[in-house]
């Protein structure tokens, strides 16, 4: 029983991690709590769904299509809600991206209706039994995609020139600019990366839970936020680990204490972190340090 729950927790946590990585990347380079991130996730899921239903796409095409669509959405967000607002008012981009959230949610409701929509089966569901643990082919696929994505992102951030530029920008815009980094371009690349990852996470969520709705973004956004705080603001590795941790905690609480206790624990953890460990579990930095 416990092993099965840990596996389930890992599955849930991996999708939290993917969303939180985007949050934390954007928070890192801009110090911005990017409100529309949950909606990007939702758009990814719906683009995947439409490609499967109306274009007969397989899961890989659906993932690719959602990646491209949400990457474009990332570019749009930068030009519509980030660059035009004044840098002199730190709250301005927060407000404008909340606006973007509302716009995206309403467009989705208008196009797809307000109901939960079923996501068709795109991967043949085969159950594998390993002793007491049962894992489906769908779960293995979604987990594999999530892990590969995280490893690739980690290698990108750590070892490439653009990755170093992102980290330098996250530390200090002026310092990065004085080393020849085009900060505007770094911000754009960061939004593209974060949005594409969220889009993929959206499709994976649809595949795994076989249902999506235009309002799924909020729940995801809040969980992503908790994970970001847990992992430390702007800490990509922290977000990866904290996502999986939160997934496990939620599943274990639901299994042993009842599912009504699930969110209670999530937010209790959030409050405890904010009170006693505001730099996150992996202690990076505080907001003041920026």
């Amino acid at each position: 029983m416990i092993y099965q729950q840990l596996i389930n927790g890992l599955m849930l946590g991996a999708s939290y991690s993917l969303v939180a990585i985007g949050y934390t990347l954007i928070f890192g380079v801009l110090g911005l709590l990017y409100f529309a991130h949950g909606e990007v996730f939702m758009v990814g899921a719906f683009v995947g769904l439409y490609l499967v239903i109306h274009a007969g796409a397989n899961i890989y095409m659906a993932l690719l299509g959602a990646t491209i669509a949400t990457a474009c959405l990332g570019v749009f967000a930068v030009f519509a809600a980030v660059r035009p607002v004044s840098k002199d008012y730190p709250l301005a981009p927060l407000i404008s991206t909340i606006g973007l959230t509302i716009v995206l949610q309403n467009i989705a409701t208008y196009i797809f209706g307000g109901q939960t929509v079923a996501f068709p089966e795109t991967i043949e569901s085969i159950l594998f039994h390993f002793g007491p643990v049962t894992i489906s082919s769908v779960q293995i696929f979604t987990l594999a995609v999530a892990i590969v994505l995280m490893v690739l992102l980690w290698l990108f951030i750590e070892n490439t020139k653009m990755g170093r530029a992102i980290r330098a920008t996250a530390e200090n815009h002026e310092t990065a600019a004085l080393l020849g980094v085009n900060v505007n371009r770094v911000v754009l690349v960061t939004f593209i990366l974060a949005s594409a990852i969220a889009g993929i996470a959206g499709v994976l969520d649809g595949v795994k839970n076989s249902a999506i709705s235009p309002f799924m973004g909020l729940q995801v956004a809040i969980k992503g936020l908790v994970v970001m705080l847990l992992g430390g603001l702007g800490n990509v590795r922290g977000a990866m680990v904290a996502g999986i941790l939160l997934g496990m905690i939620e599943i274990l609480t639901a299994a042993y204490l009842g599912s009504s206790m699930r969110d209670f624990f999530t937010f209790a953890i959030l409050i405890l972190i904010l009170l006693y460990r505001p730099t996150g579990l992996f202690g990076t930095r505080t907001i003041e340090e920026r």
Binding site: R164, A165, A168, N172, T175, L179, G180, T284
Partner: peptide, 19 residues
């Protein structure tokens, strides 16, 4: 001394050669 605190000495020098 606007160095990049969260990077190693080596990475700081690599960032110096960014251009």
């Amino acid at each position: 001394r606007a160095i990049l605190n969260r990077m190693t000495v080596l990475e700081n020098l690599r960032m110096g050669a960014f251009v």
